[in-house]
Design a protein around this nucleic acid. Structure first.
Length: 683
DNA sequence: CAATATGTTTAGCGTG
DNA sequence: CACGCTAAACATATTG
């Protein structure tokens, strides 16, 4: 099969692996998933509570309990529609405590009463809560569990292979067990991708970052592990990935070595920004950019085809946020990031935010997207696009994101005339070296002759898509840092929203406009204006418009998650937007099990579903995408809880399990659930 | 002068 | 349709 040219998708964010406290216990009837067994169960619909849960606890009638197919200390509990969840939880809690470390202490509760929309909105609405909660909590002692689902498998094949039932569309993962706090990440994975490379992606993306450490970001450590890594064959890696996926991989050097041959989940745009922002002067020669990327992403040094450099050059030229400056002697060209477009995203920053999650970030970026916003196209994270990417801030977001991609896609630029050229008319900024194409684009854009040909984008009402501005600009004194310094001072820990009116600024652009800032240096080709080094002082608000897909989808969004939300200024991109493809990437956190129980989906969704974009932009927007996704497909979402009796924590998880013939909620009763279908969903 | 590096632009593809 | 990626063509600059 042809390998998709897309960059690796971040399917989920995985907490740093935690040591398993308990070995598989003997009381588990189903220690491992067995297709044969599932087949039998599929035809019988029998209640397995008796045989799998011989404990004396009193459970309401109709409850079904089954051992998790892959998680040694976890059981899956299907709760009847009208069962008293509270009592069930209490019983399970007692059961778990009674079992101690030698028995099941974690339970995934699947409720049959949830509706797709309610679930979706519920998850969405609490995104910010989740972020906040995670920020303050220490999850070092957490026990994580992952619930993954593959998709688009023929039911029969699923039975044979132990994979997912047909019409299962989401990949979900729950991460819980942080004392009183749990987090659950639910992702929407592209069917094809998931079906083809779920495991691969999990390693490629999450583990890719997860295995990194701040110390490991440097070229040395990366190179050190390269040799070993290259010896890992795809087959071997694939075989290992499944195990890793189910057994929270340890952040050992070994796993890191094995995974970093994977293509990094960042777009070229994001990586270029990483590279440039890693330098003191925020500028790099092309060669240095190459070197930086090779050093930090061994994939490009040892695996990628030579053409990647061409792509780098292509990106540098294509995106207006990248400005070429010529040294005084006119012989050396440096690439910089337009000060007004530079979000100062660095790899280290992204890493810390997404992986460690232990450093409270000064901001909790929040981005709002209209329901019709094209953020959805991202996968790249699909699930997570901390950085989308595309831009890492240009992205991320993907998902996002902690990142995406930093897609700079939508920068509302203010083509401000530089002080050095106060008399230059805006329309003249690019006249010197314009290509026919650009001229045409300019003509079409009329008032914005200098924007790139790819910037003919929508202009969104300011109120509908507030833009979160990140005051944080690590080690950078470029535009943003200074521009938002006041915000940082006044509201260091509060989300900062910069509501902009694109129309006023001149329109939305994918990337910042490269406008003539200084003398036109010698150009290898006469089509692109170049700025001189001296222009670096510009500090105009380059990015004043609502975050577009590019921003929110930072290509690096892979690290998006509750904890990541605080990482970078553009968390919105990374988080909410970066992973547009993942409807439930952000799920609510609850301080207590009771609070979780009291949370009713209908309430949660009422806002997003009924509120107009303008009336409730802050609460509904972030989830609009998710809502859309959740309600659009032929899917049946069910809501679940994860009860960790070891930590007295309860998390809500969202499962999108579509069983053939069970679209109707009323039919999705416990009696109709086939374990052969459900179990794989919970693997 | 050839080879290489750098830079710009266009086109096609896959994906959402 | 927009986006990111890839490939390619072409041009200019640099280097040996």
């Amino acid at each position: 099969m042809r390998t998709s040219p897309r960059r690796p998708l971040i399917l989920r964010r995985r907490k740093l692996p935690l040591p398993l406290r308990d070995a598989p216990t003997t009381d588990q009837v189903v220690a491992n998933y067995q297709p044969e067994r599932v087949q039998k169960e599929a035809s019988s619909h029998e209640s397995i509570s008796e045989r799998t849960d011989p404990s004396p606890q009193k459970f309401p009638a109709g409850i079904k309990i089954v051992n998790h197919p892959t998680m040694s200390n976890t059981q899956v509990v299907i709760i009847p529609k009208h069962a008293d969840i509270q009592s069930i939880i209490e019983a399970l809690t007692a059961k778990g405590k009674e079992s101690g470390t030698s028995g099941p202490n974690k339970f995934i509760l699947i409720s049959c009463s949830g509706s797709p929309r309610s679930v979706c909105s519920s998850a969405s609405q609490h995104c910010s809560q989740t972020d906040h909660a995670n920020t303050d909590e220490d999850d070092a002692e957490g026990v994580s569990s992952q619930v993954e689902k593959n998709v688009e498998q023929d039911p029969e094949d699923m039975k044979e292979t132990g994979q997912w039932p047909s019409e299962t569309h989401f990949v979900s993962e729950s991460m819980l067990g942080c004392k009183d706090q749990s987090s659950v990440d639910i992702f929407h994975a592209d069917d094809e991708e998931v079906s083809n490379c779920v495991l691969d992606d999990s390693l490629t993306n999450i583990q890719w970052l997860g295995k990194m450490s701040s110390d490991g970001l440097g070229p040395c450590s990366m190179k050190q592990e390269l040799d070993d890594k290259e010896n890992v064959s795809p087959e071997k890696e694939g075989a290992r990935s499944e195990e890793d996926a189910s057994v929270a991989p340890c952040s050992s050097s070994t796993s890191w070595q094995e995974s970093f041959s994977e293509r990094p989940p960042y777009s070229y745009m994001a990586m270029i920004q990483f590279a440039i922002n890693s330098t003191e002067g925020k500028r790099m020669t092309l060669k240095e950019i190459y070197t930086w990327i090779e050093d930090h992403f061994p994939y490009f040094k040892h695996v990628a085809k030579p053409g990647w450099k061409n792509s780098i050059r292509h990106n540098l030229s294509l995106h207006d946020m990248f400005v070429r400056e010529t040294a005084a002697n006119g012989k050396i060209s440096f690439w910089t990031i337009h000060p007004d477009a530079n979000r100062c995203l660095t790899l280290d920053q992204v890493f810390k935010a997404s992986v460690t999650g232990d450093e409270p970030l000064p901001f909790q970026p929040v981005a709002f997207v209209r329901d019709e916003d094209p953020f959805i196209s991202v996968k790249q994270e699909e699930a997570f696009n901390v950085m989308n990417e595309n831009d890492p801030f240009i992205a991320v977001k993907q998902e996002e994101e902690v990142f995406t991609t930093m897609r700079e896609e939508t920068f509302f630029t203010t083509v401000k005339q530089e002080e050095t050229f106060p008399n230059i008319e805006e329309e003249d900024l690019f006249t010197t070296v314009e290509s026919p194409t650009r001229k045409l684009a300019d003509t079409l854009l009329e008032k914005h002759p200098s924007i790139s040909r790819r910037k003919q984008r929508l202009i969104l009402p300011c109120l509908e898509e507030p833009v979160l501005v990140f005051p944080e600009c690590n080690n950078s004194d470029s535009g943003l840092a200074s521009d938002f310094s006041f915000l940082q001072q006044t509201q260091p820990f509060e989300p900062v929203l910069a509501v902009c009116c694109p129309q006023e600024e001149g329109g939305a652009f994918k990337t910042p406009i490269k406008h003539k800032i200084g003398k036109l240096p010698t150009l290898s080709t006469p089509s692109k204006p170049v700025s001189t080094v001296s222009q670096a002082g510009s500090s105009e608000f380059y990015r004043t418009g609502p975050p577009t897909r590019e921003e929110s989808l930072l290509d690096f969004s892979p690290v998006q998650g509750p904890q990541e939300s605080m990482l970078t200024p553009f968390k919105d991109s990374l988080g909410f937007l970066g992973f547009t493809g993942t409807p439930f990437k952000d799920t609510p956190l609850f301080d207590s099990p009771r609070e979780l129980l009291n949370t009713k989906s209908p309430e949660v969704i009422s806002g997003p579903l009924t509120s107009s974009p303008t009336s409730a932009p802050y609460s509904a927007k972030p989830c609009s995408k998710e809502l859309h996704v959740g309600s659009s497909g032929n899917r049946s979402l069910t809501e679940g809880l994860v009860l960790d009796t070891m930590n007295d924590s309860l998390s809500k998880i969202l499962l999108d399990i579509s069983f053939t013939g069970l679209e109707d909620d009323d039919e999705f009763g416990v009696d109709n659930v086939s374990w052969s279908q459900l179990i794989p969903e919970l693997r």
